[in-house]
Simulated scan of single mutants.
Amino acid sequence: MAEHPHAQLVRKGYEAFARGDMDTLRGLMSADCTHHVPGSHQLSGDFKGQDTIIGMYGQMAEQTGGTMQVDLRSILVDGRGHAVAVHRFTADRNGKHFEENGCIVFRIVGDKVTDLDECVEDMDRSNDFWS
């Protein structure tokens, strides 16, 4: 059975992110897309618009010295514009090593991601790592 188009879109995004291909990522998002990052650290909050989201990704890469990796584990879809991607995140920052499971709930309209709601496994550990 063929992979659902929403799963294909999310997979393409994860592959582009892993390559650092921000132009491809930009093309997968609506102009007013919003990425919601949980927590109470410098990179948490709501990032609205392609440029703002791509800028946040750049800050993550810079602050982790390029050690950040996201390993996509699975994608679930509902066929009504939602997809959930489960991943494993690893990175090093300021002498700290961080590994955790996480997910992103994607909202998709047509062939564009309009909203990304990120969820983390351990909010306190995430806040500590990014603070």
Rank of each mutant, 00 (worst) to 15 (best):
M1N: 13
A2F: 01
H4M: 00
H4N: 07
P5K: 06
P5R: 08
H6P: 00
A7F: 07
Q8N: 02
L9I: 00
L9S: 06
V10P: 00
R11E: 02
K12G: 09
G13C: 05
Y14Q: 01
Y14I: 04
F17G: 01
A18Q: 00
R19Y: 01
G20Q: 00
G20V: 02
G20P: 00
T24D: 04
L25G: 06
R26T: 09
R26A: 15
R26C: 08
G27A: 11
G27S: 13
G27N: 07
L28N: 10
M29R: 04
A31F: 05
A31Y: 08
A31H: 12
A31I: 14
D32M: 14
D32S: 15
C33W: 04
T34L: 02
H35R: 11
H35Q: 12
V37E: 06
P38C: 03
G39D: 06
G39K: 09
S40H: 15
Q42L: 10
L43F: 13
S44I: 12
G45H: 11
G45A: 12
D46R: 11
F47E: 14
K48F: 01
K48S: 10
G49W: 13
G49S: 12
Q50L: 05
Q50K: 14
Q50W: 02
D51N: 15
T52F: 07
T52M: 06
I54D: 15
I54Y: 13
G55C: 13
M56K: 10
M56N: 15
Q59V: 03
A61W: 00
A61R: 05
E62K: 07
Q63F: 09
Q63A: 10
T64Y: 02
G66W: 14
G66Y: 08
T67I: 13
M68I: 11
M68Y: 05
Q69C: 06
V70D: 06
V70Y: 01
V70L: 08
R73K: 03
I75Y: 03
L76F: 12
D78S: 05
D78G: 08
G79T: 03
G79R: 02
G79C: 08
R80H: 10
A83E: 01
A83I: 03
A83G: 01
V86Y: 12
R88E: 14
F89V: 14
F89K: 10
F89H: 15
F89S: 06
F89R: 13
T90E: 06
T90S: 09
A91S: 12
D92N: 08
D92K: 07
D92L: 08
R93C: 02
N94Q: 12
G95C: 01
K96E: 14
F98P: 04
F98A: 03
E99R: 10
E100K: 03
I104G: 03
I104D: 07
F106M: 06
I108D: 05
V109E: 06
D111F: 05
D111T: 07
K112R: 13
D115H: 09
D115G: 10
D115W: 09
D115T: 09
L116M: 15
C119D: 11
V120Y: 10
E121C: 13
D122R: 12
M123L: 15
R125C: 14
R125A: 15
N127K: 00
N127Y: 09
N127H: 04
F129T: 15
F129M: 15
F129Q: 13
W130C: 02
S131D: 10
